[in-house]
Nucleic acid binder design. Structure first.
Lengths: 163, 163
DNA sequence: CTAATAACCTACTAATTCAGTCGGGTAAAT
DNA sequence: ATTTACCCGACTGAATTAGTAGGTTATTAG
């Protein structure tokens, strides 16, 4: 099982997408600003998300990404799977050849755990996350912050142009 | 959440200990032979397991390691915790400062997942594992194999001494 | 007593992965 | 035409993993 910043970033970014999906495609630089994830890194992650048809891209000005289907039909497990290679807890990827061709002592334990984690994350859709109160609260703060910093940087630009 | 070969090795080794606990202390080289884990690596892992008082050591010839307490009172979660730093799925270790001092969008999701995994692994004792049929089967095969290879290497030694 | 055993300890290493950067593309809208 | 923003590949520092190497200390069997 592998669950690092990579998978967390992917889920966070997808959730950001789900939250701002009403006003057309969402650009990666918007997500980068709101979520504090580097733009280039997001590009790498979204390349994988696109390959797994979790998102569709719109090129050109005003473009960005959109969810490929309804929020209720995209699950956290799918997102993590898309960017990591697997959510498997066994070392042998279920092949049971963990100990030189044979099954290792704890093989079945890790299989059970993998199932457990997968089941848990498979039940959580973006829709479900969007409706959570803790998510809404954080999202509201982020929207406010990004507007502030947007106007702040606008002021900086103006100041630079004037000064 | 970090669950790699490290944690798997530790659990496997502890289970081996639990299975062979009747005939006195178990040496790391025995575990190394049976489980196919490098001796030096086992030493590193057991240093941590000892610090967490999961095992006690007996030095000198005939020495080795023993479980510090009953098999039913040692749980997989404790073992994984002892060798990895944590089984936490959040990046901020529960401090909620994932996004530059603030809570990130998906913080609570990872908290939930951490709890889920921890609960699952906290319920599984070594006792429980020892009684599982799949574990017994693998253990039987390993005991046979190690005896064969032990007598084989004994023969090699004899052959070397004679030849 | 001494030789063997096995825990204990420190330091080093190759390989991998993560998280991120950089530079240059290409497609589409204004 | 220019800007926007996706697209793509190569590269990088830092961290971690899994393991090596080489020694020291405690204990016991002979």
């Amino acid at each position: 099982m592998r669950l690092t910043t990579k998978g967390r970033y992917a889920v966070t970014a997808m959730l950001d997408l789900a939250l701002h999906t009403d006003s057309g495609p969402v650009s990666l630089s918007d997500i980068s600003n709101r979520q504090g994830i580097s733009l280039s890194y997001l590009e790498q992650l979204f390349a994988k998300l696109r390959k797994q048809s979790l998102v569709v891209s719109v090129r050109g000005p005003g473009g960005g990404y959109r969810l490929s289907r309804d929020r209720s039909d995209i699950f956290v497990a799918q997102i993590v799977d898309a960017v990591n290679e697997s959510v498997d807890a066994t070392g042998c990827k279920g092949r049971s050849d963990c100990q030189g061709g044979n099954t290792c002592l704890t093989h079945h334990l890790w299989c059970d755990l993998s199932d457990q984690i997968h089941d848990f994350l498979s039940e959580i859709s973006l829709e479900k996350l969007v409706k959570r109160q803790d998510v809404r609260q954080v999202a509201d703060r982020q929207d406010k912050d990004s507007k502030v910093s947007a106007s702040a940087s606008q002021e900086k630009i103006s100041a630079a142009l004037i000064g």
